[in-house]
Design a binder for these strands. Structure first.
Lengths: 232, 232
DNA sequence: CGTAAATAATGACATTTATCATGTAATAAT
DNA sequence: ATTATTACATGATAAATGTCATTATTTACG
């Protein structure tokens, strides 16, 4: 990670954009910009918490390790999103790890300053509250899916979720360059099983592949696969 | 559910006790007490959000349905804890269900009043923030475990977690009357598999059973089974 | 540009976990 | 008290998923 000279403008920070016009200059004065290379780890589980981060450009995976070579990707943080906030509160160490998926610029805010801001700016805190609630909902949904949904369903869900988050390129492929390993970690299964399910999805013409790129061909059917059995 | 005459005193509400001495009377004026029978559902996924709840006495399971007869218990709410807060924010419907595990008294606070309070009382909001962060951490830990830990490990973890939450009776049994079905839903596996794992744990002398009651005999070994492989 | 290292593809096999079937015990309803 | 219903116990079996081994392909980098 390399400190960058140019100031992170937080132009797209979901929290700042809406509610923090007056907070914004303060954060600008109290932060440091970091340039992170693709694959570089920003912090990892067990590291002492020193601050929280905003993604200025690029994208970051937030994950929890299991083995030396097994992990679960908990979420992605894109431009404007914050991460590292799980380090707040008791413990004093990050419960998760974060690494850049592409060349990324993050801005770093000291935790003391962040906590102080929370206590002062109730609008910001409210936004943060809503953000956490939403994350919690997603998280519990995913928990339930990991417990009861088949891997195929989880792959379908993961793909739809990726497309929702990252959109598509001009030729209709999901606009993120994710390794198959990372895709597996996101779906919460082994590489091999995910690979098999991807093959099935291809032969069922629900998705199509071009190298590492993935296109959702039959979104309807994918949704069915990924769908909650809501009432039954 | 039956409205109760006697006023819920919130004597043990973790949020109120510490930070809300002045907020407390206000909430007392704006709430309704409900008596809930064992097994009774307080709200379920998809129900429109009307308020949030505090447990005054008893205990509640918070769960997410999958099939007609499959669910995942996300957490338990005990005396003093709040639930239903996942209904805050967008959506307008509860993403989870809640049911009483024993005869329980909950107090219900109108969502509009709750949201207003959040915006006004920054101390309370801060406490809530910390609570959500902690829930999120737990939730992500459990996610990771569901993805990578064996059922046996999850059962061990579930049992330890139950003992931590509900304590033990005079004769050393976990102080909660939970059906085997619910235990399975908490561990995130089928009844049969959990049953087998319990048998293994008994024959390995890590736990002992007496009817439905469970005693942790060798906490050390259980912890090892449930433990994160932290660094590796 | 060429070589090492990482990532990906793929089949064979092992293990775990879920499903099904059946019987019993406990609980609730009439 | 009697019956119906629900929870619990248990083995047999099937299905899903993970592990391992091997080869191909891409990427990183000196």
């Amino acid at each position: 990670m390399k400190k960058s000279q140019n100031i992170c403008d937080l132009k797209s920070c979901f929290l700042c954009k809406n509610t923090l016009k007056e907070w914004h200059p303060a954060i600008s004065a109290n932060k440091v910009n970091l340039k992170v290379k693709k694959g570089e780890v920003i912090f990892k589980e067990g590291d002492p918490v020193t601050g929280i981060y905003f993604v200025n450009s690029g994208s970051v995976k937030v994950y929890k390790k299991w083995d030396k070579d097994k992990e679960l990707i908990v979420r992605f943080a894109r431009e404007g999103s914050l991460f590292g906030h799980r380090g707040l509160g008791v413990g004093g160490t990050y419960p998760i790890s974060a690494a850049a998926l592409e060349p990324t610029i993050v801005c770093y805010v000291d935790v003391a300053f962040f906590e102080a801001s929370i206590k002062v700016n109730s609008d910001f805190t409210y936004q943060l509250l809503m953000f956490l609630t939403e994350e919690l909902k997603q998280s519990e949904r995913k928990m339930r899916n990991l417990a009861h949904m088949s891997v195929k369903g989880r792959v379908a869900e993961a793909l739809i979720s990726l497309q929702n988050q990252f959109g598509v390129t001009a030729d209709g492929f999901i606009n993120i360059d994710l390794s198959r390993q990372d895709l597996s970690s996101y779906a919460g299964a082994t590489y091999e099983t995910v690979f098999r399910m991807m093959n099935e999805l291809v032969s069922e013409k629900l998705i199509s592949l071009s190298g590492k790129s993935i296109r959702l061909v039959n979104r309807e059917e994918l949704l069915k696969l990924a769908q909650d059995i809501v009432f039954l």
